[in-house]
Design a protein around this nucleic acid. Structure first.
Lengths: 213, 213
DNA sequence: ACCTGAACACCGTTCAAGT
DNA sequence: ACCTGAACACCGTTCAAGT
């Protein structure tokens, strides 16, 4: 299950002084290359050329360290330029840009899986969306539901995509029939750029302000 | 020094003989009460009144044990009765029934998070769906995409729902503004029965065979 | 055949001590 | 103030030995 991740022969010979920033930075470097789940305090300490407990001067515990890493990951999210008043185009743009972040930095998904995201960017994303939707005739309540639907679809899709992509899934090999031959369906079709866009557009075209009915 | 035997609550005093079935059964009992992630071979062995290595006679390793548990979890999924030819009603029914399973047995989500599910039930679910959709004018390819969209939405939603529900999320408390006061939006609204159904129906009404356009 | 003891290579974390 | 050593309570797993 777990391979040898850190080259334990200590590299970083303590040139830089230890600090919260240095620790989080090292954790980020690791997490970008590997995974949030395999990050260990001991491995991190070794990489920094220090005993595990040295870290505890700067972070209360592993959970706090993980939260710090997650914050850093979330800071990478940027809102696309807002142009025009086509709310469907806007919702599609933010959904696509969020997914692109997830594809490029799969570890960012863990940030969303850990709990609700309430960073400034996340809030501005919601606020701008609600603005456009209410302008289009949605009630505020409907607007939030519509936004939530798109957001959940995007994060949910990306979450499943990540597990299917990641590290040579054993079940694909173990189960002899990953395809339904009669239909020429591969389970891999379930997650792809096309499939994401297909579902997203279906969802978007199904969203309409009740007033317009 | 190391003779400190941790006092596990060794209940089961080895009345039953050990077997693969007994082990998986015990793992299921644990997993229903606790979580798939906290299951340990050592704990399980202790619960069975046996040393950890006794298990290795019946399961190759922890991963194989986990797979066995997952299979058992998936066996709980039942297809709803198929009545009529309304494909939207059918897709909503299988989505709702799948989510209900997830709500009642949150641990079943891990089964889907571990990788693609290709059990007989999962395949029959897909096949029946494709049948109805093609009858309604979808091409086989479209039918699979439509099914996949609904399936991914359901599993994705449930995954996020589980992390938000579970064990008193710290971020809710840590982040002072979990609500956008101006909008009276709580992040909790994002996952609810209503929200699930709202998004599902939007998605369903957005799905149409291209031939009908 | 079925299980155990001892060990190895890990984890997160605490506490007292060293500089 | 900043870090270390030793320890505690865990992990999954292997290998040789006991019955």
């Amino acid at each position: 299950v777990s391979e040898a991740i850190w080259e334990y022969p200590v590299r970083m010979r303590r040139s830089e002084p230890l600090s919260r920033e240095v620790i989080v930075h090292a954790a980020m470097a690791y997490v970008d290359e590997h995974d949030l789940g395999t990050l260990s305090t001991r491995g991190l300490a070794a990489q920094l050329g220090v005993t595990p407990m040295a870290l505890y001067r700067y972070v209360r515990n592993k959970d706090e360290l993980l939260d710090a890493v997650v914050e850093e990951l979330l800071a990478r999210i940027r809102l696309p330029r807002r142009s025009g008043t086509d709310w469907r185009r806007w919702l599609e743009a933010i959904a696509q840009s969020l997914r692109r972040l997830f594809v490029e930095h799969p570890v960012a998904i863990s940030a969303f899986a850990r709990g609700p995201v309430t960073t400034p960017t996340a809030r501005r994303r919601l606020e701008q969306s609600v603005e456009m939707l209410t302008a289009a005739g949605f009630t505020p309540d409907e607007a939030v539901k519509a936004y939530a639907a798109v957001h959940t679809y995007t994060v949910g899709f990306s979450t499943l995509e990540a597990t299917r992509r990641s590290n040579a899934n054993p079940r694909d090999l173990a189960v002899p029939v990953a395809e339904l031959d009669s239909l020429h369906v591969s389970i891999h079709q379930f997650v792809s750029d096309d499939q994401f866009t297909y579902g997203l557009r279906a969802l978007l075209s199904g969203l309409t302000p009740s007033a317009s009915v």
